[in-house]
Every structure is written in structure tokens, then in C-alpha cells.
Design a protein around this nucleic acid. Structure first.
Length: 589
RNA sequence: UGGGGAGUGGCCAAAUUGGUAAGGCACCUGACUCUGGAUCAGGGAAUUGGAGGUUCGAGUCCUCCCUCCCCAGCCA
């Protein structure tokens, strides 16, 4: 269970009536099924079963936000019902898996705020038992050793519209199958030379049921079992049995496994489960898709391998480690996963939904600070040269307990370039010639002059301040339309800031055009490097991982690339920006 | 094309199993504000993919049609 800021979800009402009792309202179909199962136990006079779920990643890549949806679902459904959730490495294919990934996976799940207790498992640890189940299938005449090679097998499988043909090896005797299978295990045959197949129905309209391979020979060493095995079970065989072995009650997976459910149930029907704690049930839900990004592990891997991003933890990546580096909090990711719901229809969630969740969380927790991304020098002509004041600034208006800090003010400052316009449009209430604005926690200033270079670019503003408005308060109660953030030029810290934009320009990059590539819509401007940022001096001691709100600019998180005196910050998210909406609507003129 | 899954405001997503379309995000308006942030109040937006049918009554049931997604790895 998450321990920090955990979004409280109401526990389903205790089931009181028969198995047909209405499920609690306002909850997704999976929670309704779980509630109904519990209700049916009660109705039958049994003690209600312990709900056991599992998150079963294959350690062949890094976890992403789509996995977070599954992780939140599995762990919270279990927790809401007083059950438990296992973390299981689905590591049945040694050629693609690595410990590097199991380490990152456990780290990410823990970081998200979930605890699997002692229930950390590996499918590889079940290889011996799985092998025995396979022999049981053979003994029951439900599996056979097949000598067809991969290409032949494809031909025999048939097509979507044509039934397959039975393998010539389908009729081998139990004895021969057992002997061959044992010799497969013993390493007598080359990789790919033979397979163990379930004997089901080559004419099934469900292709998954056309005598699927359940064991293959692969002479490669496994990250966990080493060289102990040279035959490895396939997903469809290993997964359902692993679930049964662990006592999983509800095996939640994504929609693409719907056709596999027939095989999941078939395998469980063929073996003696009586010594096992449960007969698990597979339930599918729709995977998460997010606008302007991709969730496919293959594509994410290509982004990394082709150097289009800096690594799996590039802050533009939808990976958990990328989002962590970007500055997303575990609570914000959990809140997001809760907000999108669980259903069976394909979906494409807008990135704005995720951004809302980070802002919502960071607004409450992030210390405020002033940072100028595109500095424009301001000289306050009537402010004494050499004078420095240390003004009080509130650390977090959402959290009075966060206290205040001192910010130096002096004659020469930087303000944001975009906060000044020489010829301001109608709805622009920031600084302009002759106009008065407030410098946050500082003074009211009035622009009295504009200095330009030979190219006609504004290089400096001349202003005057009203000494009576110290701290930003006007004793005469006069109002000002805008409050600007600023930084004292002499005291400013320089920093590198990485401004991130969408990785892909199209809403759904996964939908590739004929003959095209996902990378056709890669956003060339997804990373904007800014080296001119000036920060208030309080940031000097900021440590990697810390997130701040730069007032009026957004949330920024200190990157691990930072070194003493050389801060690097990632923009986690911008603030909601009314002015940007005005500009977008073209209503500023 | 065989099998399977799914279509509810721009995006997610509910709907007590037939009783008259929640909520969130986004958007817009106003209030407030030393962040054009936050907060508060309000608003627009859906003939529930389409056409028929059953019914006093249909998002929910029936029929037909359309669209999208998944399956032809010795991947998961």
C-alpha cells in the first residue's frame, strides 16, 4: 500500500445478499466482479476467499505509465479487499531478459508506493513444477512432441480463415512423447529442433487453440536459473499455472490476451489443481494510451538504442524512471491512474489529464522560488547603487507551515523578457512603457525607458520604483494589474534548464501511415536547452530530485546531472496559463 | 475474410441491470487574488456508432448494418 498521500478509495460495501447482489456503484467492472465473488462465498456459507492479485512484468524492459495503471489496479484492488498482490517476474524467455530489468522494475514499483511484502516471485522458480505439469499433460494424452520446424509449423497452422492441419507427429504414443520430452530437457537436441505442443484442435477458429507450443528448446542461460534448463515454457502454459501455484484469485491483464483466455482455462482444466490454493480467473481490461507518446516497449527501446533520447530515464520518456527524473511524484501518478478509470474500451487519454494530476500534487507541496528563464535587465534608476535589501518571501502559500525566506533586491534586476512589451496588446497587463507593475515581494516599479541595441532589440529597461511600496504593498491602496517575478542580477545563480515538450507531434503516434515509421512524427523540439536562466540564490543548496515551483513559470526538478555550482533543472510541467489561452484564441489584439 | 473485444459531450468514464444520460479532465464566464497559479461560483457542449423492432418507457432487450481494436512468434 502506498503510504504517502494515498488517494482514498472507498472500500466496496460489504456484500450482504446473494451472489447476484448489485455491485457497489461508482466502481469499475473488475471491482464489481471481485465484490460479487466475495458475496457468492458468503451466500454459499463459505468464508470469503482472500483476494490475491499479481503484477507480472517480463524483465525485458523498463516500466512505463501504462504499467503503472496495471500496478495501481492490482495492488489497490487487493488492498481494498484485505488481500495481497504479488510481484512476479514473468521470466520464461532467457534470450530477452536480464537482471538489469528486474532491478529497475522492483525499484519502480516500490517508488510508486506499493509493497509486495515477501511475495516476490519468479516464474523461473516454478520451472520444475511446470515441467511436471507438462509431463502430466503428456501422460493424459494432451500434449505431444512435435518435430516440425518454425516455418513448417506456420504452414500447418492455417490462416485466419482456413483451419490448420494436424502435425504428422501428433499421433506419437505417450511413451514416446515422454521419452522425447525428457531428452529435450536433457539437452539432446538443438535449439528449435523440437517443441512440446498442446493437443487441442487445429481447426479451432481461435488460432491460439491450434495445438499451441508450450515448451521450446533454447540453449541459452537464464538470468535466474542459469544453465539448469535448456527447455523453457511458453507464456500461455507458464502464466496460468504460475497464477494457480501462487493462489492468485483474479488474474488481471490487458485486452490483447482475450483470445488467450481459452487456453489459460484449457491448461488449468487439464491438470490436477487439487493441491493448489486457487483456480485463478483471467479478467482483461483496456491498456492505457496517452496522447503524443508511445507505450510499446519495442518503440521505447528503439528511441533509446537509436539515441533519439538520452536513455530509458530521459525525462521525455513515459517510463516510470523518466517521469521520476522529470519530477512527477508517485502520488501524482497514482492519482492519474485512479482518475482514468478501468474499462474495456480502447482509449487515448489526453496528456492534459496527467499534467493536471502533477500540478494538483505539486501545487500543494512544491516550495515557491523565483527564476527567470529569459532574462531582461532592469535598472531601477532611483534605487541607490550598491544597496541590497533582503525581502521576505513566502515559501508556499498553500502551506503556511513552509515559512518564509529572504530574497535579495538591488538596483539591477532581471525580469522575464515576455513580461514586457513595448506596444502591449489589449489584454496584456504586464510591464510596458509608462506602466506600473509590482515586483513580487519587492516594490512597484514604473517603466521609464527602453534601451535597444543596433539591431533594434531591447537590451535593457529603465524603471523607477516607489519606496513606499516596500514588500509589494501600496499604502495608498492603489492597485496594479500584474505582479512579476524577478531576480537580483548581482545575486543571481546561473542554471541550465531543460524545457520538455511532447516527444511526438501527432496525438496517436502508434498509428503509423503506410510505409511510414513512428519516428516520422518525432518532435524535433521536444527538448529545448536553456542556459540563460537566472535563479534566486536560495536555490544554491538544491539537491537532485527536489522540485520547486518557479513562480508563474512552472514546476522544475533538479536533475542528477547537476554539480556544485552548476545546477541543471528539468521542467516538470508548466503552470496553467490563462494568458497563453488568450494568445491561442488570438484575443490579445 | 474466421474468431474475439469495443463504440456514451473534445478526452476519460458512470448509470442501482428497462424508469427518463453522474463525475473528472479540457474549454468558456464571473468572483477573489502580491503567481494571468491556487481557490470559489456558474456555463456551453450527448438525438448514448446507425437503422429498425419490443415496451407505457430502451444507453440498457431483439434484428440488421457501420466503424475501430486484438489473434496466423518456438515473444509476453
Amino acid at each position: 500500500m502506498p503510504t504517502d498521500n494515498q488517494p482514498k478509495s472507498p472500500s466496496p460495501a460489504p456484500p450482504t445478499t446473494s451472489g447476484a447482489a448489485p455491485a457497489p456503484a461508482g466502481t469499475d467492472f473488475i471491482r464489481q466482479i471481485v465484490a460479487a465473488d466475495l458475496a457468492s462465498d458468503l451466500a454459499a456459507g463459505r468464508p470469503p476467499r482472500t483476494i490475491v492479485t499479481r503484477f507480472p512484468p517480463e524483465p525485458n524492459g523498463y516500466l512505463h505509465i501504462g504499467h503503472a495503471k496495471a500496478i495501481c489496479l492490482n495492488f489497490t484492488v487487493a488492498a481494498e479487499n484485505g488481500g495481497r498482490c504479488h510481484l512476479r517476474m514473468d521470466d520464461t524467455n532467457p534470450s530477452k531478459e536480464d537482471v538489469e530489468y528486474v532491478d529497475s522494475i522492483t525499484q519502480d514499483v516500490r517508488w510508486l508506493g506499493f509493497d509486495w511484502g515477501e511475495h516476490f516471485y519468479h516464474a523461473a522458480d516454478y520451472f520444475e513444477r511446470l515441467y511436471l505439469f507438462a509431463e502430466e499433460l503428456i501422460a493424459n494424452g494432451k500434449a505431444f512432441v512435435c518435430d516440425l520446424d518454425a516455418e513448417q509449423m506456420r504452414e500447418y497452422r492455417g490462416t485466419l480463415t482456413q483451419p490448420g492441419r494436424e502435425s504428422p507427429w501428433r499421433g506419437r504414443s505417450v511413451q514416446e512423447n515422454l521419452d522425447l520430452f525428457r531428452r529435450m530437457r536433457a539437452g539432446e537436441f538443438a535449439g528449435g529442433a523440437r517443441t512440446l505442443r498442446a493437443r487441442i484442435d487445429m481447426a479451432s477458429p481461435n488460432i491460439v487453440m491450434r495445438d499451441p507450443v508450450i515448451y521450446r528448446i533454447q540453449h541459452s542461460s537464464h538470468h535466474r536459473s542459469g544453465d539448469k534448463w535448456c527447455i523453457y515454457p511458453m507464456y500461455d502454459f507458464a502464466h496460468c499455472l504460475s497464477d494457480a501455484i501462487e493462489g492468485i484469485t483474479h488474474s488481471l491483464c490487458t485486452l490483447e490476451f482475450v483470445p488467450n483466455r481459452a487456453l489459460y482455462d484449457w491448461v488449468l482444466d487439464q491438470v490436477d489443481l487439487s493441491a493448489l490454493p486457487s483456480r485463478p480467473r483471467q479478467i482483461e481490461f483496456a491498456r492505457l494510451n496517452l496522447t503524443n507518446t508511445v507505450m510499446s516497449k519495442r518503440t521505447l527501446r528503439l528511441l533509446v538504442e537509436e539515441g533519439r533520447v538520452s536513455g530509458w530515464d530521459d525525462p521525455r520518456m513515459p517510463t516510470i524512471c523518466g517521469m521520476r527524473r522529470r519530477g512527477y511524484t508517485p502520488a501524482s501518478i497514482r492519482a492519474f491512474c485512479e482518475s482514468i478509470g478501468i474499462a474495456r474500451s480502447d482509449n487515448l487519454v489526453q496528456f492534459a489529464q496527467l499534467e493536471f494530476c502533477v500540478r494538483d500534487d505539486l501545487n500543494r507541496s512544491a516550495p515557491r522560488v523565483m527564476g527567470v528563464l529569459r532574462p531582461l535587465k532592469v535598472v531601477i534608476e532611483n534605487y541607490p547603487e550598491g544597496r541590497v535589501e533582503h525581502l521576505d518571501a513566502v515559501n508556499n502559500p498553500e502551506d503556511p507551515g513552509a515559512g518564509t525566506r529572504k530574497v535579495p533586491f538591488s538596483r539591477e534586476l532581471y525580469i522575464e523578457r515576455e513580461d514586457f512589451q513595448e506596444d502591449p496588446p489589449k489584454k496584456f497587463f504586464r510591464l510596458a512603457p509608462g506602466r506600473e507593475v509590482r515586483l513580487r515581494y519587492g516594490y512597484f516599479i514604473t517603466c521609464t525607458g527602453v534601451v535597444k541595441n543596433d539591431a533594434g532589440e531591447i537590451t535593457e529597461l529603465r524603471c523607477t520604483y516607489d519606496p513606499a511600496t516596500t514588500g509589494g504593498n501600496a499604502p495608498d491602496g492603489r492597485k496594479v494589474k500584474a505582479t512579476l517575478h524577478w531576480v537580483s542580477a548581482a545575486h543571481a545563480l546561473s542554471a541550465e534548464v531543460r524545457l520538455y515538450n511532447q516527444l511526438f507531434t501527432r496525438e496517436n503516434p502508434a498509428r503509423v501511415e503506410e510505409g511510414g515509421s513512428v519516428f516520422d512524427c518525432l518532435n524535433p523540439n521536444s527538448l529545448e536547452l536553456n542556459t540563460e536562466t537566472k535563479l534566486e540564490p536560495s536555490l544554491a543548496s538544491a539537491a537532485p530530485g527536489q522540485t520547486f515551483q518557479f513562480e508563474r513559470m512552472g514546476y522544475f526538478t533538479v536533475d542528477p546531472d547537476s554539480r556544485a555550482g552548476a545546477l541543471v533543472l528539468n521542467r516538470t510541467a508548466t503552470l496553467k496559463d490563462e494568458w497563453a489561452n488568450v494568445l491561442r484564441r488570438g484575443g490579445a489584439g
